[in-house]
């Protein structure tokens, strides 16, 4: 019997297959099938909607907590879809025994982050389950925004376009891991968790073709999805990847690939080459985009193929996340 495994939720290939073979199969419709993070609803006066659930261990980490994450995740999904987030809903599943003080801290973060993003929490729901039926607190948020004339979708991506990331890669993944496992690197890594809508408002230009937030599965998995949907190939350059020194050394010690680590406050932006410089400058003028940089280009070639040019000049195949990376050196 096939059962749900943790990897089905990791945002990698198994998640992708689950969506295709189960959710789309039974629930499929024109909106859902776009497989976008947020969907624009025609006939609803330009309304966009997105939903996300949040489970994270630990609940509190350097740079944020589950409450902040719950707002950012949904706001960002709307924002990278070209919408302006306006309202969110907040549904909580609480485990019996959760200290009220912790809950209050989380809710304060929700409030603060919502204010920063300029969204209002407009309705909510709370369920409490018996001890052991949940891990302290699970949160679901649904975001509602309105559609702008920003035309961002994978179909617009063309060979020659440039791939930009709004900042350093893998911070959230390493922050969570080191917090959870008690790993102390040179300088502690902070989660990058942040709402991106204001940053996007700052740099958006019509030459921006597509945006995504590379959360679970990381930059690699997100670019794989985009390359497949757009029917193009992509080439990244290892030397261009922005990495905090601590993230770099964490990856080197632990044998992790930063391209597969989660980010919660970064956008991947595919732009026409003629506006790349301008978009970059605008990004860099915003506090959340200071480290924005080009990381690669879109190419002709096998649809969905993502390659990385390494420091040594050779190329490496960058696939979707597939479980953990097991040792191969023989």
């Amino acid at each position: 019997m096939e059962r749900i495994m943790l990897a089905h939720g990791s945002g990698g290939r198994l998640s992708h297959e689950l969506i295709l073979n189960l959710f789309q199969k039974h629930l499929g419709n024109a909106h859902l099938n776009q497989m976008n993070d947020a969907v624009l609803l025609p006939g609803m006066e330009r309304i966009a909607v997105s939903t996300d659930s949040f489970v994270v261990s630990p609940l509190f980490f350097r740079g944020g907590n589950i409450g902040k994450l719950a707002v950012c995740g949904t706001v960002n999904d709307l924002a990278v879809s070209g919408a302006i987030p306006k309202f969110i809903t907040l549904a909580l599943i609480l485990e019996e025994g959760l200290p009220i003080e912790e809950l209050e801290q989380i809710i304060k973060s929700v409030a603060g982050t919502a204010a920063e993003a300029g969204v209002l929490v407009v309705c909510g729901d709370t369920k409490v389950v018996e001890r052991g039926s949940a891990d302290r607190i699970f949160i679901n948020t649904t975001g509602i925004g309105y559609i702008t004339d920003r035309l961002v979708e994978p179909k617009r991506i063309q060979p020659g376009d440039e791939i930009i990331i709004t900042g350093t890669i893998g911070d959230h993944g390493i922050a969570i891991l080191s917090e959870r496992e008690g790993l102390e690197f040179q300088t502690p890594v902070l989660s990058d968790c942040a709402p991106l809508n204001k940053l996007i408002d700052t740099f958006y230009l019509p030459g921006v073709k597509c945006m995504r937030d590379p959360t679970r599965g990381g930059v690699a998995t997100t670019l794989n999805e985009l390359a497949q949907q757009a029917g193009v190939s992509m080439l990244l350059k290892e030397e261009l990847l922005p990495l905090l020194p601590s993230v770099e050394s964490a990856c080197e010690m632990l044998g992790l690939d930063p391209l597969y680590l989660a980010n919660e406050g970064k956008a991947l932006v595919i732009v026409a080459p003629e506006v790349a410089d301008e978009v970059l400058l605008k990004m860099q003028s915003h506090p959340l985009g200071q480290n924005a940089t080009r990381i690669g280009i879109v190419q002709e070639g096998k649809s969905g193929l993502v390659l990385l040019e390494t420091f040594l000049g050779g190329k490496r195949f960058v696939g979707m996340l597939e479980g953990e990376h097991l040792p191969r050196i023989c």
Binding site: E181, G182, L183, E184, M253, I329
Partner: peptide, 23 residues
């Protein structure tokens, strides 16, 4: 730092792969 991280890896098993490798 290396020793600190390795200590944690041995204790918690994070990114520690069980192997019978001769190499």
């Amino acid at each position: 730092m290396e020793r600190r991280i390795l200590d944690r890896q041995v204790d918690t098993g994070v990114q520690l792969f069980q192997t019978s490798s001769a190499g």
